[in-house]
Amino acid sequence: MASEVHYMWQKREQGEFKGVDGIPIRWISIRHPQNERCVVIVNGRNESFWKYQELCYELSRKGYDVYAYDHRGQGASGRLTNDSELGHVICFNDYVSDLHSFITNVVGKQTYRQRFLLAHSMGGAVATLYLEHYQTHFNAVVLNAPMFGINLPVPLKLVASSIAKIIERYQTQPYYVFGHKPYHEAPFEENDQCQSQIRYVWAKHLYQLHPELRVGGPSARWVWQALAAAKSCIRDVEHIHTPVLLLQAGDDTVVDNDSHHLFYSKCPECKMKVIPHARHELLMEKDCLRNQALEDTLDFFETYS
């Protein structure tokens, strides 16, 4: 990370475009004149393209140009509330519109023989809705632990959306949903995201160096918008005509793994693979698990190259 990856990162291109309602959306790319294929990375909630430096390096070495951007309200992009650490969105479809603008106006300016999409968690829901609502020219898509549902106790699943909607209605301004708070750093031993201590510590150090990237818990509106979007992903699955590989983290406690099986059963274009013992952040996991996820991703892309 301090040598080859750092050198690559210093050579990145970066830019900005106006998303829905004029929110500045910031992006980066790693390009080489000889590359004829690209990968667009769609990150998850509370993430930034800064966190994906290792993946950008690996994809670049495999001959892919890499494009990544930060969602509205997080990372290097513009915020929607006075509290810069509140995870908030007005409408989940704004994420989808921003992705469409990024692909059309940034990635679309370059000519490639093949284009691929790689999305994680909330980004998986954003990418799926994009596939369902826009005509795309991607050869294949990989969804890592996509947010087709949030992992909640069964009784709470039935009422979570309604509760979040009621809370949001009576708030005078957006605020953290019950039980959540601004950004804080949990010890590695208490985290439910990954089992790689070195990657976990590196990511936390990144947010110490760049505090402007930090995001804490979600707002009530974000919760009910996200739950509604997750349902839409499965409801409209018949509109997907692009080959999809769904990689599920076997020990995921963040998203609802049952929803992956439902999506898979309804989507003829979808292949699904479970990576046993992996936690939610497959591409931040310890090497034996992360390597498997990366190998499956690259193999899938090669199949459609």
Rank of each mutant, 00 (worst) to 15 (best):
L152A: 03
V141H: 03
S60I: 11
R45W: 02
A160W: 03
A119M: 07
S196Q: 02
L298A: 09
I28V: 13
P182Q: 12
A230I: 02
I166T: 14
S232Q: 10
Y304W: 10
I240Q: 08
L283D: 05
Q173P: 07
D287C: 10
R221D: 05
P33D: 14
Q74W: 00
D299E: 14
V201D: 11
N291R: 04
L156M: 09
E189A: 12
Q135T: 08
N151M: 06
P33Q: 14
F49H: 14
L209E: 15
I23A: 03
V177P: 09
Q114C: 13
F301E: 13
D296R: 09
D252W: 04
R12E: 07
A186Y: 10
D65P: 13
D65I: 00
R290Q: 09
K266N: 05
D256R: 01
Y304D: 08
H184T: 07
E16M: 15
H210S: 13
S97Y: 10
I234V: 09
A119H: 05
I30W: 12
Q171S: 15
M284I: 05
S196F: 11
V254K: 07
Y183M: 10
I167L: 15
T128D: 01
R199M: 08
S97L: 12
S259G: 07
H180I: 04
R12T: 15
G78I: 00
V274A: 04
D192W: 05
Q10I: 14
E281L: 03
S305K: 14
Q248D: 09
V177S: 08
S196W: 06
R279D: 03
C270K: 11
K181C: 11
S101F: 10
D65R: 05
Y130I: 00
G19Y: 00
V66Q: 13
Q193A: 10
H137S: 04
W222L: 01
L156K: 04
R113S: 12
A140T: 08
G250L: 07
R290L: 08
G149D: 01
S196G: 06
D251A: 10
R61L: 13
D21G: 07
P153F: 05
A203F: 04
Q195N: 11
A164N: 07
Y170H: 15
L247Y: 06
G149T: 05
W50L: 08
Y52L: 05
L117V: 06
L294H: 09
R214A: 01
L294S: 06
R12P: 02
I240S: 08
N93K: 10
R37S: 14
R26I: 04
L247A: 07
L283K: 04
L131V: 07
A293T: 11
I275S: 03
F148D: 03
V237K: 03
V66N: 14
R26A: 11
Q110N: 14
H133E: 04
F178R: 11
L283W: 05
E132P: 02
V244L: 11
Q14C: 14
Y67S: 09
N46V: 01
G75N: 01
E190W: 15
T104G: 09
Y207P: 02
H280P: 00
Y183K: 01
H32S: 15
